[in-house]
């Protein structure tokens, strides 16, 4: 792969960066100041045959247009909303992602967030650390997780993994997706409002597309209601964030646990003071174990491409 010029868009993983530097010629996009990035890309364009991007910086139309020799976009993510797939198809550029390897981590976190939210674990931890337990007595009652009805938006790999884990807690599972899945006993809703009205914990686990942008809007939040809680481990723009903040502020929604936000790394500051939210910084797949597997998958796809072998996880 020594001859392969790779545009690395973001400092996403030290191991991946090290391996890429060892095996290819790497162009580090983030090292140029934002206003000079287009120029950086243009001046190195002849050498760049691959882009390695992630959930923050992928391959938009302008970048793809500026790279006439681009052959492959190997994304260090499962979601490809930062890659212009249409343009890639047009140009015959291959696209790969890192499916499956992060499924377990994201599903684990979804359950962890739901329990932390209902049982107020982060709040209990703050209460103990601030010495209040000793001074003010027991923390207040929280809400049971076992047996609550879980509504899942998007029953793909991650949605299924969330469902399987929640079943271990005796939770009935319902879901919304474009079409009913043939191989499950989970209750299907063809209408998201109906799902939200009939579950206690609504978990967003679908890909971000034109259709699913702001899929969780005011109507859905109101249907979920003051006894319901939202868990988002998908993408920030799945949820209409100002509406979510308003619903929490006005007590129309019971709570929210969020791993993703509309304008990362910015989180609406109004949430910082709320006790019925859990806020984590897009760490769904952020474990050492999974990041290494994702990096190996990116490297494997690039290697397969260079050697004219079938790609490991092609999307386009």
């Amino acid at each position: 792969m020594e001859s392969l010029g790779v545009l690395l868009t973001f400092p996403m993983n030290p191991y991946l960066e090290e391996e890429l530097s060892r095996r290819c010629k790497v162009f580090r996009l983030w090292q140029s100041p934002p206003e000079r990035r287009q120029e950086f890309i243009r001046s190195n364009a002849p050498a760049i045959r691959a882009i390695v991007g992630n959930a923050y910086v992928g391959a938009d139309a302008a970048t793809i247009d500026a790279l006439p020799n681009l052959e492959i976009v190997a994304s260090f993510s499962v979601g490809l909303d930062k890659v212009d797939l249409h343009k890639c198809r047009e140009r015959g550029i291959r696209v790969t992602n890192t499916p499956d390897v992060l499924t377990e981590d994201v599903a684990d976190l979804a359950i962890g967030l739901a329990i932390a939210l209902l049982r107020r674990i982060c709040q209990a931890d703050r209460y103990v650390r601030s010495g209040e337990w000793d001074k003010k007595g027991d923390y207040r009652l929280t809400t049971r997780f076992s047996g609550k009805t879980i509504g899942i938006i998007g029953l793909g790999r991650i949605g299924m993994a969330v469902a399987k884990r929640a079943e271990g807690f005796g939770c009935p599972i319902s879901y919304y997706s474009r079409s009913e899945k043939p191989n499950t006993n989970y209750k299907y809703y063809s209408n998201l409002i109906d799902l939200a009205a009939n579950c206690n914990v609504l978990i967003v686990a679908c890909p971000l597309t034109e259709e699913t942008r702001h899929i969780v809007n005011r109507e859905v939040l109101d249907a979920l209601g003051s006894k319901g809680v939202l868990v988002n481990i998908g993408r920030g723009p799945h949820v209409d964030e100002p509406e979510l903040v308003a619903a929490l502020r006005e007590g129309r929604l019971g709570g929210a646990a969020l791993d993703v936000y509309e304008n990362e790394p910015h989180v609406p500051e109004e949430l910082f003071g709320m006790d019925n939210v859990v806020l984590v910084p897009h760490v769904g797949s952020g474990t050492n174990e999974t990041r290494k597997e994702m990096a190996d998958l990116v490297l494997g796809n690039l290697e397969a491409h260079v050697m004219n072998k079938p790609l490991l996880t092609p999307v386009v």
């Binding site: 684990d108 976190l109 962890g112 932390a116 931890d125 049971r144 989180v267 859990v278 984590v280």
Partner: peptide, 25 residues
């Protein structure tokens, strides 16, 4: 049920740093 849920919740929190990264945010 509540104790078992809590044990799993604490475990995921410790491994995945939920409370610590909530503080960070």
């Amino acid at each position: 049920d509540d104790t078992a849920d809590y044990a799993v919740g604490l475990l995921i929190d410790v491994l995945r740093h939920i409370s610590a990264s909530d503080r960070y945010v």
